[in-house]
């Protein structure tokens, strides 16, 4: 049984179809990526899993053998443990670093576990602890991306959805962020990543899907996709 099983998912915005019945799975413990051009429907896919956009009738989404469509967006996070790092980070810049992390535990009642998770995040990203009482908006782009990941982890750590985490980051910061993500994955967080930076995503993930115009056109082991001539031509610059 897959952790996340998406079947025939269709989504429309104002009657324009963004996803045309896509199907994919994510197994427990995996790192899976979806690559594709801007506007291919990658973010929409994550939004549908987070229940922020409506899936059309006929779509089936199952998570840990539960019907995902029966959950509202906040309960997807608080009850199923699916967290979402949105594109562009979208931190609450008017709140402090610590408040951003605490807000993510709004629905949690496991006080001791919350404190342990908080310590875990501060160990993973020591910069965040240094800046815990600083407003999130005053931090650098790299620190903000760390906070976005840490905040997501605090909200739910069973499956983490990441939307273009590399965007706007210098290569070195990007590498350290992906190292941190790999650590979290090794500790049991399953990761579904969407990226325009196809090379980076395919080097990081175990499996990948290629999305074009709202359809998944290719799937396979990330290593295989890296060597696939079509993928190389279209997404890796030849």
């Amino acid at each position: 049984m897959s952790l996340l099983a998406v079947e025939n998912l269709s989504v429309s915005y104002d009657r324009i179809r963004a996803l045309h019945g896509i199907s994919f799975t994510v197994e427990e413990g995996e790192i899976v990526c979806i690559i594709g051009a801007n506007g291919a429907g990658k973010s929409t896919t994550l939004r549908a899993v987070s229940r922020l956009v409506k899936a059309e009738p006929g779509s089936r989404l199952r998570f840990a053998d539960k019907d995902l469509l029966a959950y509202g967006p906040d309960r997807v996070v608080s009850e199923l443990g699916i967290s979402h790092v949105p594109e562009g980070r979208r931190l609450f810049e008017n709140l402090t670093v610590l408040e951003n992390l605490r807000l993510a535990t709004f629905a949690r009642r496991d006080t001791e576990r919350i404190e342990a998770d908080l310590r875990r995040m501060f160990r993973l990203f020591p910069r965040l602890e240094e800046r815990r009482n600083q407003k999130a908006g005053t931090m650098s782009g790299g620190e903000q991306q760390m906070l976005a990941v840490a905040r997501a982890y605090m909200s739910g750590r069973r499956l983490m959805l990441l939307d273009e985490p590399s965007m706007g980051l210098a290569p070195l910061l990007m590498m350290s962020l992906f190292d941190a993500l790999r650590e979290l994955n090794a500790e049991g967080t399953t990761i579904l990543l969407v990226e325009q930076n196809a090379r980076l995503a395919l080097q990081f993930a175990r499996r990948g899907y290629v999305m074009e115009n709202g359809r998944l056109v290719l799937a396979g082991e990330a290593r295989g996709l890296l060597e696939n001539p079509e993928v190389r031509r279209a997404y890796l610059g030849g």
Partner: peptide, 20 residues
Amino acid sequence: MAMRAMAFDYAVVPLMGVPI
């Protein structure tokens, strides 16, 4: 805190597990 977060960026608040 949830109210302040909502005032800043309404759309992201459900992703924190907050029932808006």
